[in-house]
Amino acid sequence: MTAANPSGRRGASTFVAWIGLLFLLLPIAVVVPVSFTPNRYLSLPVDGWSLRHYEAIVSEAAWRNSIGDSLLVGASATVIAVVLGTLCAVGCWRISSRLSEVMRFLMLAPIIVPSIVHALGFYQAWVQVGLIDTYAGLIIAHALKGLPYVVISVSASLANFDLRLEQAARNLGATVTQAMYRVVVPCIRPGILAGAVFAFITSWDELVVTMFITSRRVYTLPKKIWDGIQDNISPSVAAMATVLIVVTLIGIVAHLLTSRRRQDAT
């Protein structure tokens, strides 16, 4: 690309680009060292470092339980979102009429509608049926927030899937469900997987709806971090943040490596 496009304005725009990238890295560059401070307040570890804040997040039951709640809610919401989203994407793909176009658009609603708006709605509806501060209530809400991502990514991988394969399976005697399980789903597995990752992360990082429909019983990690920031900012939040940064880092490296391998394979 450099050789093909030598005439760009290198100086000024490259400078802005690198400033922008450094700006993107700045929060990480701050949180990681702060998490190793030996002090009880937020500071850089100038005179020595310590792991006490990591010990705190391991030993404190509140941190451990919040991670457990987030994993439970995230995993359950992901399963629901994947099942519903895949059904919807396959149905729309097979039927493809104007109505299924409308359907696919309706499915996008949870991405388009601002969080605060559906947070109010969930609260009002959940009060009515007693789902406030229950796992079921939060799982349903998070599943619906993750649903659009599954529909989008499964639809994208169906676009490259040959319709005749499914028809062939059925001509050979498979029922619709068999053809779905044994032919369609294995072929669109990358799309389903990508949708599942999106849905899980959506739930894992969700706070606005969680704040409205849970209080004490269901207490997710974002809620714990939020309370940790509001009350008194202790460096244990920085330790937790560092753990999350490392997890994110591993996820992206894994993603870049697998996508590179896939490129090499083709």
């Binding site: 949180v31 990082d205 974002p222 971090i225 920031i229 999350l244």
Partner: peptide, 8 residues
């Protein structure tokens, strides 16, 4: 995470 960044 949006919270990690806000905190930072």
């Amino acid at each position: 995470s949006v919270l990690v960044r806000g905190f930072a």
